[in-house]
Design a protein around this nucleic acid. Structure first.
Lengths: 217, 217
DNA sequence: GCCCGTATAGGGGCGCGCCCCGATGCAATA
DNA sequence: TATTGCATCGGGGCGCGCCCCTATACGGGC
């Protein structure tokens, strides 16, 4: 069994210290780099070529999702584990959709992150047991996803601008004032976005925008 | 200079490891106990009598606020430092209102928590420098705070049940069906909650409930 | 020239949260 | 007994998001 080279990225220095202490107890795993933001993480993954990257989801600048997208585009041979604290089902499904290998909650047991690293390095996946119910939900969601998964990429630039402002909890009037256009036009864009994202019901857009705020930054 | 005896409480095992590692680098500070929830923290503070308690704000069961209230009611001679991650100005002011000695952000420098412990043990206060602007705001807020500060504790049990369901993004109709009461009654509770929390404007309650979902669990 | 997507702007209607007012019943308390 | 707080239920009005429709203008591709 050779060494497993990993990189860790988290913007909390104290948490990073804990992570290092916990992981280094396992002699097989070697931390070859650490980053405190997404940009540094991408650079270090590119240069150091770790087998596994343990990424925090909430980081200033580029978050874990952005880092994963970047390494996928660069076709880097690194497995990614998301280490997060908030247990949002929407974020969880988004993470699995973009192809993450592991998803571990920060409040989990100390041993779990080590197990996750070993599993992922061996080519398997590792999802926190607390999330198994959500994992089961994906079977039901599979049919929906098979038809079409609405994506932010389908939106026009103007619609994206509006959506970003919606995510900041602004009303149509406020957005109209911000963009120097009529509130009615903003309403029209909201409708278009709703249609493209297959959103229905009361305040669906606001809920969606807040849930996906990190992807809009 | 004698030893400073402290207790740490945080529900994230990995973060606790990091905290221990960082603090034990200072030979003068000795960790005499650690807790992973508020109830345990209160017990350990009572029995071990540390000089300083470093408390996470988000903990299952009793949070940092509850622990502080408990030790104040028991008149225990312990200084309390809140260690939190979200930089909400409202929470910050609440913390200072209830008489915390230190308020440190988790994403701060490693050395900061040690400095905070030494300052607080010496009878001084320590507030993260990032929050100095909020500290200045307190002069303006003094008049408002003198009148009343809204809190979740002011809500009746029924209102709390409704608020929890609101946090799950349920409509008044759905909540009414869930609780077997009239939608109008739910509306009335929403109004009462809005009044007690000083919330105004469109969907203020939904935004508040989602933002404070963790405190409602 | 014509069609299509995009952005702009409006009208009307509906659902729902928020706000004002009212009322009844029930329990604890002064 | 009387008051106070809580929970229950209702009416009416307003704001705003959502949904239906039309319309104009611009640019690109057939």
């Amino acid at each position: 069994m050779s060494e497993i080279h990993i990189l860790i990225a988290d913007d909390h220095p104290i948490f990073r210290e804990g992570l290092k202490k916990v992981i280094t107890r396992d002699a097989q795993i070697k931390i070859i780099g650490e980053a405190e933001d997404g940009v540094t993480a991408i650079e270090l993954i590119t240069t150091l070529q770790p087998q596994v990257a343990v990424l925090d989801l909430d980081m200033p600048g580029k978050d874990g999702f952005a880092v994963l997208r970047a390494v996928q585009e660069a076709k880097l041979p690194v497995k990614v584990i998301f280490l997060t604290m908030h247990n949002s089902e929407a974020i969880f499904h988004s993470a699995l959709d973009v192809g993450v290998s592991g998803y571990v909650l920060k409040d989990g047991a100390i041993a779990e992150i080590v197990n996750a690293i070993r599993s992922v390095a061996a080519g398997r996946n590792h999802i926190s047991a607390e999330l198994s119910t959500w994992l089961l939900n994906r079977a039901h969601r599979a049919t929906e996803l098979a038809q079409q998964k609405p994506s932010l990429a389908d939106l026009t630039p103007t619609e994206l601008r509006v959506l970003k402002l919606i995510a900041q909890e602004m009303t149509s009037k406020e957005i109209a004032a911000e963009l120097f256009i009529s509130p009615k036009t903003v309403e029209h864009h909201r409708s278009s976005i709703c249609e493209k994202l297959a959103l229905r019901g009361f305040n669906a857009l606001v809920k969606f925008a807040i849930a996906h705020k990190s992807e809009l930054a």
